[in-house]
Amino acid sequence: MGKEEKKDEKGGDEIVTAVYKLNLHCLQCARTTKKPLMRTQGVHSVDYDIKKGEIKVIGKIDGKKIHQQIEKISKKKVEMTIVAKSKDKKEPVSTITTLKLPMHCAKCEHDLKKMMLKHKGVHGVKSDLKAQTLVIEGTVEPPKLVKYIHKRVRKHAEIVVKKPDEKKPVEKKEIVKEVDVKIVETSKITDKGEEKKIEVKFKETTNPYFIHYVYAPQLFSDENPNACSIM
């Protein structure tokens, strides 16, 4: 592919309507000019009016480059009258489809791109010989593109579907609760002697370390057989 073809692939991101004025003698003259324009990268549609001597081109195009191309095709002086952004909301939505199919060499790649641009509704084609893929922009449904390729060149094409990014599961952090321990000691004198009562009061918090419990001493207890007693 030459430098001129690479330059043609570069177009604007917005849809533009350009009107060119030139001398159209007959219907055949108009068709001869329209046919190569429809194969140009980024061109969506081409209409002509023989009486007014006008050709209207709509697409993601560079108005100056199309102007030069029309002059080259018709070999006539062409005047560019209007270049404006298209506001037609009824225009079909353009989508991008990636197809995987065998391409043996650079010529095979070039012929496929040229063939796809002939299809009505195909606005742009980008190819990758190493990846064996065609990226097609236009209003044609992907299954129809597959049938078109098989019909014209007898090649089996597959639609490449992008897999959604798998979300990694969020790891749940373990929260270790700490108990804020408060020891309350009370003493009571009885016939058996002084009895001490210890109460443990605690409050839960969320600090990351373990808890150790403190139990009341069993020094003076009737339930403990090894406890001391006062005589």
Rank of each mutant, 00 (worst) to 15 (best):
K3H: 14
E5S: 14
K6P: 00
K7R: 13
G11Y: 01
G12Y: 04
G12K: 02
G12C: 11
D13E: 11
E14N: 13
I15M: 10
V16S: 00
T17L: 03
A18C: 06
A18Y: 01
L22T: 03
N23R: 00
L24P: 01
H25S: 14
L27H: 13
R31C: 05
R31N: 12
T32S: 12
T33K: 03
K34Q: 13
P36C: 06
L37W: 01
G42M: 04
V43Y: 04
S45K: 09
I50V: 08
I50S: 06
I50D: 02
K51D: 12
K51H: 13
K52W: 11
K52N: 07
G53D: 04
I55C: 05
K56Q: 07
K60M: 06
D62L: 10
K65G: 01
I66V: 14
Q69D: 06
S74D: 01
E79T: 05
E79P: 02
V83C: 11
K89R: 08
K90I: 00
K90S: 15
E91G: 01
P92E: 02
P92Q: 05
V93M: 15
L101P: 04
M103G: 08
H104I: 04
C105V: 07
C105D: 15
E109P: 07
L112I: 15
K114N: 08
M116E: 04
L117K: 08
H119E: 08
H119D: 08
K120P: 00
V122E: 01
V125F: 15
V125L: 13
K126Y: 12
D128C: 12
D128M: 10
T133S: 12
G138L: 10
G138E: 05
V140Q: 06
P143F: 00
P143I: 02
K144I: 02
V146C: 09
K147V: 07
Y148G: 07
Y148I: 10
I149Y: 09
I149T: 09
I149N: 03
H150E: 10
K151M: 05
R152Y: 12
R152E: 14
V153H: 03
E158R: 14
E158K: 12
I159W: 09
V160P: 04
V161H: 03
K163Y: 11
P164K: 07
D165M: 08
E166A: 14
K168M: 13
K168N: 03
K168E: 14
E174S: 08
E174K: 07
V176N: 08
K177H: 14
V179Y: 15
V181L: 15
I183Q: 14
I183S: 11
I183A: 05
K188G: 02
T190W: 09
D191T: 13
G193S: 05
E194D: 03
E199A: 14
E199L: 09
V200Q: 05
V200I: 15
K201T: 00
K201Q: 04
F202S: 13
F202Q: 05
K203V: 15
K203A: 14
T205I: 10
P208Q: 06
F210H: 11
F210E: 15
H212N: 12
Y215Q: 06
Q218M: 11
L219Y: 15
N224H: 08
N226D: 10
A227F: 02
S229Q: 06
M231Y: 13
